[in-house]
């Protein structure tokens, strides 16, 4: 599956609270997809494993393939979603986390900064082992969207959305 399922989550307010329904056929504008190259030998990650990757605790996909993290610059919605759901950190905490990580010599550098979804997907297509977060509706042909806990963007229970 090279792109998102294009589902939309519609929230309905009822007497018992909020009920969610998934309407197939339309993109979920709030979902953020994890994109990698198609030659990455992986289709699915657990959320915990994804967090390990993003924290720099897992730095290799395999012995010969290093993880390269690409993260949007501050102010981007994709970055906000990643910080809120995966890192559970503020912008300042995120910055301090990576400065500390490099300080402890646990990582050679912080994630690379990308300034647009286009730039992110461009670099993903060029750097083996790279991983980026882009709006689900903007995943281009030729890249792979990773499942999280077996779910693609737009499916009920998919964790990366606002």
């Amino acid at each position: 599956m090279s792109h998102c399922l294009c589902s939309r989550r519609v929230f309905l307010s009822g007497a018992g609270g909020l009920a969610a329904a998934v309407v197939r056929g339309a993109p979920d504008p709030s979902a953020v997809a994890i994109v990698v190259r198609t030659d990455l030998p992986l289709d699915n990650l657990s959320f915990a494993e994804l967090r390990r990757v993003m924290l720099g605790d897992r730095q290799f996909w395999s012995s010969n393939l290093k993880v390269t993290l690409l993260v949007r610059a501050p102010g981007a919605r994709e970055r906000d979603v990643v910080l809120k759901t995966i890192y559970q950190m503020s912008e300042a905490q995120f910055r301090q986390y990576w400065i500390a990580k490099v300080f402890r010599a646990e990582a050679a550098s912080a994630p690379r900064i990308v300034y647009s979804n286009e730039m992110a997907t461009e670099l993903v297509s060029q750097i083996p082992g790279s991983v980026a977060f882009v709006e689900a509706s903007q995943v281009p042909k030729g890249l792979k969207t990773l499942k999280i806990n077996g779910l693609l963007p737009g499916q009920p229970g998919y964790p990366l959305h606002e």
Partner: peptide, 9 residues
Amino acid sequence: QAPAEATAA
């Protein structure tokens, strides 16, 4: 094709 937001960011 990087948009103008790159500069702002």
